[in-house]
Nucleic acid binder design. Structure first.
Lengths: 160, 160
DNA sequence: TGATCTGTAACCGGCGCGGCTACAAATGGC
DNA sequence: GCCATTTGTAGCCGCGCCGGTTACAGATCA
């Protein structure tokens, strides 16, 4: 279980919405209407996006949030890092150091392997921008192929 | 936050331990000593590995778990899929369908993008085997490629 | 000044996870 | 057959994260 929190998805939604309402400040209440959540939740996420320099926010009457960059200059990796401050994707337990070679040394090995996997995921995220998402969302419900193929020799080990 | 549960890390640890105690059944109590956790937790994870065909388990006196494949025939992707039945890595909210184009269509777009990222991570996991982990942990190469007793596919549950 | 909007703290309920106990069932030694 | 060992699994608990909500101070503009 334990998925990555929906903050990433909500943040992408917010940025796509701001790309739509280009130029005018949008209030957290309005955004919350599209995202279908609470305005405070939106403000929390917008705050993280502001800290990352992805949006500009102005308080007070007539205020709201706007994009701080061109949509094609914001990758989903930027968004991921802005709202998910986790540094490790995989949790690693603490092996028993006084038992055997395995328990004493496996932690660092696992951290290295899992870090590579995490980086591969982030590299893929960096290939998509808010502009891409905006185009796919607004452009006539672009064909949603639900079954992507797998470019991995995974079966090699699972049947051998 | 919300990391992937430590079950993956524990499962890899268990398999590396079984690769070390090659040939003899190992009890959940013994494994728990190396992993530094509870025996029931180990049994839960070993059960998942058994369902995935990665280990053989025998109940009763003198029982325990053994590898069901060569260590170099078990990838971390196999392990990940065995213990983490989650199909989606990223949680995606439900946008408001009655608001605008964004809220109504973003869900499928996000699912597609996040699915690609998830697959990239899995592809990287498939590049590492239990034999690799065992070698890195112990500094030795796994004693593989000489043990014929392990090629038994399914029918022979009891050996020796 | 008053209305609007952000920023943030505080609290809540839900849920996944790991640790733990307890017990039935399977298994092998005697 | 009997007993010790071990798995399998059902519960229960506490912890921590997450999203939802209320409340309120500060900023901003007409």
């Amino acid at each position: 279980m334990s998925t990555i929190s929906s903050r990433v998805a909500v943040a992408v939604h917010v940025l796509a919405f701001l790309a739509w309402k280009r130029g005018e400040p949008v209030t957290s209440e309005t955004i919350a209407g599209s995202v279908n959540t609470n305005a405070v939740v939106v403000r929390r996420i917008v705050g993280a996006l502001r800290n990352a320099g992805l949006v500009q926010v102005q308080a007070g009457a007539g205020g709201g949030a706007q994009l701080a960059r061109e949509p094609n200059q914001i990758t989903l990796l930027d968004v991921y890092r802005a709202v998910e401050e986790k540094e490790e994707l995989f949790a690693v337990h603490q092996g028993s150091r006084s038992c055997c070679d395995i328990g004493g040394n496996i932690r660092s090995v696992l951290q290295r392997v899992f870090c590579r996997a995490h980086e591969a995921m982030q590299a893929q995220l960096s290939q998509t921008t808010i502009a891409d998402v905006f185009r796919d969302v607004t452009g006539r419900t672009a064909q949603c192929a639900g079954e992507p193929s797998f470019a991995v020799p995974a079966g090699a080990a699972s049947e051998a």
